[in-house]
Amino acid sequence: MNSHDEMLDSVAAYALGTLPPDEASKVAQHLQTCDACREEYRFLQPAVTAVAYSAEARDDTSAGATALSPLLKARIMKKVRAEVPTPQSLPRTWGAYALAAACLALAVVTGLTDLSLNDRLTRAREQSAAQVQTLADLAAPDAQRYTFADGSVVAAGDRLYLTMRNLPAPPAGHVYQAWTLPKGSKTMAPSSTFTPENGGVAVLRLPAQATAVEAVAVSVEPEGGSKQPTTKPIAVVRI
């Protein structure tokens, strides 16, 4: 093999990205002056691209491919859209006004119904008591905490809580759903569905008894929830 054939082989290794930096820069310089090597490099480039495409993920997960978490796009687009005013920002603003107007209307209507005043007071007291209980449980020194990226599962006595932060809004038509794995079971049981508050925070008490649960998971599901997870969980915590 003559030295130019060897150079052509080096061009292939260069195209594939397997040359150490010093050798790569030699080949790059040679390519500037040698038509035959340049032609070879051009010819091989699409083959290198093709090697990359051979790894392209497929949507069809039954074929053994790994699906991307649907949250990845939501996370990326949240950052992208946070930077620039987009055409969607106008309807969103109007949506907020509409919601505020609806709340005001509801307040006026319920305000007119004196009969329900006691009921509402009772309900408000119950909610407030539940929130105080939640705060006390989350802050309790003897509560058991199991943390994962951007969240935690807290067991306080029999009560079980899920807290999450930095959670992007779920894709349109979807919600987050919590799952609990009963002790001794191999199947996740459906638990509460939820969407994060502004700022990506969610704190909820799960209906299951903490002492009867082996693991808690969270996945993205269609609105209304699912009977079993239909997407890869974004968090799984063994407790």
Binding site: A12, A13, T18, F43, A47, V48, A50
Partner: peptide, 13 residues
């Protein structure tokens, strides 16, 4: 190794 890389890439191309 380099020769095999190149032969394989040419075939693939």
């Amino acid at each position: 190794v380099k020769t095999r890389m190149r032969t394989g890439l040419r075939r693939l191309r």
